[in-house]
Amino acid sequence: MTNGALKTLFLPFDQEILAVPSASERWLFLGAEADREISDGWRGVLTCLQPFKPDYLALQKAGFNAIPRLQGNERFDGALILIGKHRGRNEAWLALALSHVNPGGRIVVSGDKKLGVDSFRKTVEGLAPVIDRLSKHHAVAFWFDRSEQLNSDKIQALMAAPTRLENRFTTGPGMFSHTAIDKGSAMLVKHFEGRISGHVADFGAGWGYLAAQVLNYPDKLKSLALYEADFEALEAARLNVAGSPDVPVSFHWFDVNSEAISEIYDTIVMNPPFHAGRSADPTMGQGFIAAAAKRLKPGGKLLLVANRQMPYEADLKALFKSVQPLEDDAGYKIIEAKK
Rank of each mutant, 00 (worst) to 15 (best):
E91Q: 03
S177V: 06
K61Q: 14
H275S: 09
K220L: 15
P311Q: 12
A237V: 15
F52W: 06
A141D: 02
L158D: 02
S279G: 13
Q309I: 12
S177C: 06
V200C: 06
L316A: 12
G331Q: 05
I334K: 05
Q286I: 14
L96H: 03
D153N: 09
A290W: 09
A280I: 15
R164T: 14
V124L: 04
K183I: 12
K122L: 13
F254T: 02
Y312D: 14
V189D: 12
P12S: 02
G126K: 08
D132F: 06
L304I: 08
V140Q: 10
A139G: 03
S39V: 11
I264W: 12
L302S: 13
H178G: 02
G299D: 06
F76E: 04
H252T: 03
N307V: 08
A5D: 12
C48D: 01
I268Q: 07
F169L: 11
L46M: 10
A225S: 15
P103T: 00
G277A: 10
V124K: 02
S262Q: 15
L6V: 05
K154Q: 13
E16I: 01
P282R: 12
S250E: 13
S177T: 02
E193H: 10
A276C: 13
Q149E: 15
S244D: 06
L158K: 08
G78H: 07
V140H: 04
G206R: 00
E37A: 09
G208I: 09
D328V: 10
V241H: 02
K301T: 15
F251I: 09
V249W: 05
T179W: 01
N65W: 05
L319G: 11
L224H: 02
F52P: 00
G84P: 01
D329A: 14
M175L: 12
R87N: 01
A186F: 04
F169M: 12
F274I: 04
L49H: 01
L96A: 11
S244F: 10
S119H: 13
A229R: 12
F120P: 03
R43S: 00
T8I: 09
A293W: 13
D219C: 03
F254K: 03
A229N: 06
H137K: 15
L224Q: 04
N240Q: 10
A19V: 12
I264H: 15
D118K: 09
L165P: 05
P54N: 02
E33N: 08
A79G: 02
F13D: 09
L46A: 05
L303W: 06
G84M: 00
T163N: 14
S99E: 14
G111I: 00
S197M: 03
A34M: 04
S322P: 07
N151I: 07
S185C: 07
A291Q: 15
L6C: 05
A157K: 14
A97V: 01
F203N: 00
A225N: 15
N271G: 07
R43D: 03
R89N: 07
W93F: 11
W42C: 04
L316R: 08
Q50M: 02
R43C: 05
D246M: 03
S322K: 14
R164G: 02
F274E: 09
G194I: 05
E166R: 12
A314I: 08
I107G: 00
K183E: 14
H138Q: 15
S177F: 09
K85C: 01
H178P: 11
Q286M: 09
L304C: 10
